[in-house]
């Protein structure tokens, strides 16, 4: 079971755009086939194998379900060396923009109309996320050495936007959940 391709597990083509419904349906079907109840009377070895398979299927599903981890997985399959996650990122213009966006979120709670400020902030984040996301999608489809490298750069940037989304959600909880 080493080196199984996550896409193959679910009988999917190795493509970035996939039908989430199909993925989820197939995941549920396969997961049922290895459910512990089905192995109640099986040998310990069979139980163990089923449990291992269940974990693998779960990992595969979680990885493919989220577009960013799916992109990361595809780049791994293409042997694109992803920069170390812990390594610092130093695209100045991009980081300046990130700083501005963080400041924008920090200002939201002082706005005259907090609700519309939150909405505007979410729009800004959405637009910028989409720009990077679409560019990454195109680069992944191209699948050349240069485009894959570009896709991995865009993926790193998208992770900053993912973080901003988390921050925005937290802000909303803070401001609107009494």
């Amino acid at each position: 079971m080493v080196n199984v391709n996550y896409f193959e597990i679910f009988g999917l083509e190795e493509k970035f755009s996939l039908e989430l419904n199909t993925l989820t349906e197939r995941y549920q079907t396969i997961q049922k086939s290895v459910h512990p109840d089905r192995f109640a009377h099986a040998s310990n070895q069979e139980k163990l194998l089923a449990a291992k398979k269940s974990t693998l299927i779960n990992d595969a599903y979680q990885t493919l379900k989220n577009p960013l981890s799916r992109a990361e997985y595809m780049l791994e399959l293409r042997h694109v060396s992803l920069p170390n996650e812990q390594a610092s990122f130093s695209d100045n213009a991009f980081l300046m923009r990130q700083m501005e966006l963080r400041e924008m979120l920090a200002e939201v709670k002082f706005a005259d109309n907090v609700e519309s400020a939150v909405f505007e902030a979410s729009q800004v984040l959405e637009v910028e996320f989409e720009q990077h996301f679409k560019a990454m999608q195109v680069a992944l489809i191209d699948n050349t050495e240069a485009s894959n490298k570009q896709a991995s750069e865009l993926l790193r940037k998208l992770k900053f936007y993912q973080k901003l989304h988390v921050e925005l959600d937290r802000l909303e909880d803070l401001l609107f959940d009494d």
Binding site: E85, Q86, S88, F89, F94, Q98, R102, K159, F160, V166
Partner: peptide, 13 residues
């Protein structure tokens, strides 16, 4: 000096 960490989305100036 501006740096960022994609893993956690931290930004430092």
């Amino acid at each position: 000096g501006m740096v960022g960490a994609p893993a956690c989305g931290d930004v430092m100036k």
